[in-house]
Amino acid sequence: MAKYNLKINGKSRQVDADPNTPILWVLRDHLQMPGTKYGCGMGLCGACTVHLNGTAVRSCQLPVSSIGKQEITTIEGLSEKATHPVQKAWLEHDVAQCGYCQAGQIMSAAALLREKPNPTEEEIELGMSGNICRCGTYLRIKEAIKTAAKK
């Protein structure tokens, strides 16, 4: 076990954890921030996507010891009251079915739009292809990203 000072959603958080613990489980178990979801544990499904210095990463593959001073943003930190353009677009298109993967989808979409404010259809597909939605809401996700891009 080791102590880490993490910067999460603009706040400083201290945790005592095994250095290999993925940030996913630090968030969920140590900090009781369960918005970031476990889906596969292998970086295959994207449910655990968070931002590391603004870039989308799979938190299940990111040991706590590797973070250092880098800033983590989770779905809880994107905006508290769904005021982020991507969250608003998700509500406008009523994207979710079961909703489990959507935090990861939203975090991937927000990072994609930061990098490419006006993505093409192909860029959206490519940027989002790491996020699985078992309910099949892909078409609405794409529409929501297009809507968010306009704002």
Binding site: M33, I75, W90, A96, A103
Partner: peptide, 12 residues
């Protein structure tokens, strides 16, 4: 439950 879903509330 749309707002809870997009803000990552503990629903599951």
């Amino acid at each position: 439950e749309g707002i809870k879903i997009v803000t990552g509330k503990p629903l599951f």
